[in-house]
Design a protein around this nucleic acid. Structure first.
Lengths: 193, 193
DNA sequence: TCTTGACCCGACCGATCGTTCGGTTACGCT
DNA sequence: AGCGTAACCGAACGATCGGTCGGGTCAAGA
């Protein structure tokens, strides 16, 4: 009933997976519908059988990324305990989500705000950042983080570091699951011996 | 002789300044020559009097950014002394160059590799990263940096943090010159109190 | 066997893309 | 004053853009 998955046919989900790869390789604006049809192996017009258009593909993709990221903020370890531990949990889990949903998060992070969908994505990203910055602020207030660095600035640098992972990480690369640990260690303890 | 700068007329340099702003706001692919002509206040065809085309504007812009970044590697403080001090100098100066040449570096960091010019830019960026990674390796070998984090990974995270500044920094913002110091402190000593 | 609907296609649409062209204006130089 | 040329313009180019259209194919249900 639900689905007798025909291997040779596309669902919105499987089409989205192909699409996001192409978007990431060529950029959203740099990708034509013909590029997509070639990558998917179906005609341009067939894509419109599954989705309303190019922008809907973008909306579905970045929505998925945002759901994953916001999910980490609602996990138990992120809502109770010492602020610094809750922050560490969010940092670690955000990194993990970024790695498991890599192509979708990659696309999200490259959105610039040209269309309505892109502006919506930017807005939700700002919400996320603000909620994390609040965590940093609490941890500083509790004396659990060094006070010299301003919370907003520290949050930005911290997530700048995390988000930059999409620029080089490829699944199946060596020390794959060591990445989240390295991020946490570098962020909280620094490089110096 | 050299120039009696007519205020009302464009040079390649002044046209480039306008162009880079638009490229950063809308993305390179998302920017049409008409967008540029509107922002510059001259006709589309007039742009071709100054440059060969859209791609040349991109090449000039990212070239300027690359020259600034590579320049830091050749400064005296980056070529002699303890590896960890040379690294700290490169980190600090790279951040400063990023801030002073902000729009050009921003554009450089968003290049995806669709055209020949973009691929050339990516190549030179990789060269830069490799030279910094070598510095990190030397510092680890000298026991001046904690050994747990692999040099290549640490370099990537470090410059991911630095490069992310272009996503939010705006000239004239508060604690402007504190940014480079915050980066150095966070990178080498971490967040934890 | 006939119908239905999911899935896909080639052909085509108006709009916009980066670029070119022929020609005009304005200013520095002699 | 007259000339050369840097700076600029409107109009148009072929190509490609995102999207539409009418119809074809095929498996499942009646």
């Amino acid at each position: 009933m639900a689905d007798t998955p025909n291997r040779t046919t596309y669902t919105v989900e499987s089409l989205l997976a192909v699409t996001v790869q192409v978007f990431n390789a060529r950029g959203y604006d740099g990708t034509s519908m013909e590029d997509l049809s070639r990558a998917a192996g179906i005609s341009k017009s067939s894509i419109y059988h599954h989705v309303r258009g190019k922008e809907e593909l973008l909306r579905l993709a970045v929505g998925r990324a945002l759901d994953g990221l916001f999910g980490t903020l609602d996990e138990p370890a992120a809502t109770s305990g010492r602020p610094v531990d809750r922050l560490e949990h969010v940092v670690r889990r955000t990194t993990e989500v970024l790695l498991t949903e890599l192509p979708y998060v990659t696309l999200l992070l490259r959105v610039r705000g040209n269309t309505g969908t892109e502006q919506w994505a930017l807005e939700r990203r700002r919400d996320f950042d603000h909620r994390v910055a609040e965590l940093v602020r609490e941890a500083v207030a509790a004396g659990e983080l060094r006070a010299q660095v301003e919370p907003r600035l520290a949050t930005r640098l911290l997530f700048g570091m995390i988000n930059s992972i999409v620029e080089w990480y490829r699944p199946g690369s060596p020390q794959a699951d060591g990445v989240a640990e390295a991020v946490v260690r570098l962020a909280f303890d620094g490089l110096r011996a």
